[in-house]
Design a binder for these strands. Sequence first.
RNA 1: GCGACUGUAGCUCAGCUGGUUAGAGCACCGGUUUGUGGUACCGGGGGUCGUGGGUUCGAGCCCCAUCAGUCGCCCCA
Length: 412
Amino acid sequence: MAKLQPVKGTRDLFGKEGRAQHHVINMAARVSRSYGYDRIDTPMFEQVEVFNRPLGETSDVVTKEMFDFQTKGGDHVVLRPENTAGVVRAIISNGLTHDLPGRYFYAGPQFRYERPQAGRYRQFTQIGVELVGPEQPAADVDVIACGWQILADLGLTEHITVHLNTLGDTDSRNAYRSELVAYFQDHRDRLSEDSLTRLEKNPLRILDSKDEGDRALLPAAPKFVDHLNALSQDHYAAVKAGLDNLGLPYQHDDNLVRGFDYYCHTAFEFITTQLGAQGTVLGGGRYDGLAKLLGGPDMAGVGWAAGVDRLAMLLGSAPVDQAPIAVVPLGAEAETRAQRLVFEMRAAGLLVDMNYSGNMKKRLTRANKVQAATAIIIGEDEIAAGVALVRDMEDGAQREVALDQLVAELSA
RNA sequence: GCGACUGUAGCUCAGCUGGUUAGAGCACCGGUUUGUGGUACCGGGGGUCGUGGGUUCGAGCCCCAUCAGUCGCCCCA
């Protein structure tokens, strides 16, 4: 039992869980397509440089959570811990900066070397969209609306609240940061140990600390919204007005901070209370400086990433697809005829289940197990008469249908 | 990286203060039913009790270590 297991923090996906994940991805692909997003698939690993500057040299992801290794050629590469930096790198690499605005949708595995727990894995799947080029607040609204619509179509919005905040532009953020640091310096004696290190590395992080002592200091702490310059203020106001216009619910959250250095202005998280400590199901924001950090041209952008594993957990199970039709041949001659029939049925788009052995009882048991709605029974008598028995698996009613009309009848 | 809890069959779990051949339900296979499933009844296969060491006449149960899982912190999807 302890022998052949997947690597820590990874898992095999199949059956119910696997189907739920694919349903999430398919839904996201469909909805994002209606918003005009084009699918993009970037490599699962990149040069380290793609991540350490944009995410922040001192961020946890960079300092301790990267799955990185040396290639035989001596390159230092890393399994992507998130996908935004990779997409922006791809946009620069392929000269797509000359084709703006760009709308990209992705879905795929991401990797983070951290301690697994509820809703957290070392290999996990994210879906996400990136809208690059436009600086207008309408783009932020567009992106948030797309995320909301995906969750709505999955039937998950009633358990989810949208938290919204602004991080302002660089000037606003620097001004705010120094005031915040000053405030916490005055209260260092009351800060938790974790927050004391945050005060050095990333003071904004103290805002979303879970420590009660830290939280007690927050109400009196300086607020980001009070330190925005005119430009940042206008941007945030326009985003909120845009969401109001669409009737999308959200709540302003002074303590919402995002982990990566590349964020500015709008930041948002879609949060549920149903997943234990890992309630953030979708998160994102604006990242106007990212392209430049990567050595590309100035390019604005907004986007989000959502955790497929977490969404699938909320979903519980995927809706069942069409019920299969079970084909039950009896005898060698019927078997041969049935194989041809099954081939034709499948060509007509029907979902068919047929086994290679077993008597009628076994085959019907199997039909029952795969939840077939109907069974097609073909024995020697039926072959001789040129018909098949069509059995309703619900009530057991059977009727005869001519073999050469079967496909047409079942497809109707 | 830190902390708490858990580890018995494919799955969910029982196993009294250590006592002899380790149990149940579900699932799986077969039978009652030679061309009729989902119900019922009968039977069957399947376990180095996570691993290694120790205590003991004797360990699934107690002790130590180790590995794995779960949950929480940090951080994030």
